[in-house]
């Protein structure tokens, strides 16, 4: 990110004779170029400000509506007539929302640990070791990835049900589904491991370290960005899953995650006037996730960029 400062904004030359760095006063021609530059920058600022408004407005509206005390359906004005915490109070005390929140948090925590272990294991094996079936594994994953995920829904549901992991058991059931196939998402971290020089492994192996020790003591410490990226992704994904989560919970409100619970509030007739409560719930979900994401943004950028470049 430091490159932007490499090219100085004013032209400077080194004056050999004087032995000092002298700033060249812009010639008239250059001045018009500067004016042009200024206009371009002004236009860019205008675009960026407009974009920022478009990008932020929905979220500002969401927050505003969550504080609206009066009627909870759609209204034709932006600023609530009366501000208050009523919606938050309501969803935290009168509904199952805290439970859904807890469920989602549990899923997210387990998911981020287990999925990270699985993804890193698979990536390490595929990046560092050569064995029979390695190519087959990678090709199969590529082919499997081309099938739409929802195709498997009913069969998955039945498998989980026979393991007792639906309804009451929906939380461990969802964790199992999310983690079971997470080995297929090795792409980005394998790409990262590939960039770590193999000579590091080899010298350690000559010193008598086992593969396991190499993985733990040499590769892991070098892989902080990708580890954090994987954890972040695994933590964030469960918050948005509606389809599988509603299928597996199967009408058991205690097993819902936030997405399933809140979706009902917007899209079923049983919940008239719950729109502002949906907004309040949405705010409570979005704040910690957004904060976490912005905190770890740097690692996210490294992950997606690496993934995009290496494909």
């Amino acid at each position: 990110m430091a490159k932007e400062n490499l090219i100085p904004e004013v032209d400077i030359v080194i004056d050999q004779e004087a032995g000092v760095i002298r700033e060249i006063k812009p010639e008239p021609k250059l001045r018009s170029k500067k004016a042009h530059e200024k206009r371009v920058n002004g236009a860019i600022y205008a675009i960026l400000i407009a974009m920022s408004v478009i990008w932020l407005l929905p979220f500002i509206l969401l927050v505003l509506q969550s504080f609206r005390v009066e009627y909870g359906g759609q209204v034709a004005y932006v600023i609530p007539k009366q501000f208050g915490l009523d919606n938050f109070k309501f969803i935290l005390t009168e509904t199952n929302f805290p439970r859904w929140y807890g469920n989602t948090l549990i899923i997210a925590l387990f998911n981020s640990v287990l999925q990270t272990v699985i993804v890193l294991s698979v990536s390490y094996a595929l990046s560092r070791m050569r064995f029979r079936g390695r190519k087959l594994f990678m090709k199969s994953v590529l082919v499997l990835g081309m099938f739409p995920g929802f195709l498997t829904m009913i069969a998955l549901y039945t498998l989980l049900k026979n393991l007792g992991l639906t309804q009451e058991g929906a939380i461990p059931g969802l964790i199992l589904i999310y983690c079971a196939s997470s080995g297929m998402g090795y792409y980005i971290s394998k790409g990262f491991f590939d960039t770590i020089p193999k000579s590091l492994d080899e010298s350690a192996r000559i010193d008598g370290a086992t593969r396991f020790q190499v993985f733990l003591k040499i590769i892991m410490p070098l892989s902080k960005p990708i580890v954090i990226y994987t954890i972040l992704m695994a933590f964030m994904a469960p918050w948005g899953d509606y389809v599988f989560a509603s299928y597996v919970a199967f009408g058991k409100s205690d097993s819902y995650n936030v997405a399933v619970g809140l979706y009902d509030w917007v899209n079923t007739n049983d919940f008239q006037g719950y729109f502002t409560r949906f907004c309040a719930g949405g705010v409570l979900v979005a704040i910690p996730i957004t904060a976490l994401f912005l905190m770890l943004q740097k690692y996210y950028v490294e992950g997606v960029t690496g993934g995009a470049v290496k494909g």
């Binding site: 698979v122 070791m129 499997l144 195709l151 498997t152 069969a155 396991f212």
Partner: peptide, 29 residues
């Protein structure tokens, strides 16, 4: 299993998971 066959340790569970929860349902459908 921690050295020359380390890939087996690493891949056993993920492969089992993919088989049961991805391959089996896909073939089913």
């Amino acid at each position: 299993l921690a050295d020359s066959q380390f890939h087996k340790t690493l891949l056993a569970l993920p492969t089992l998971g993919i088989f049961t929860f991805t391959v089996l349902p896909i073939i089913f459908m």
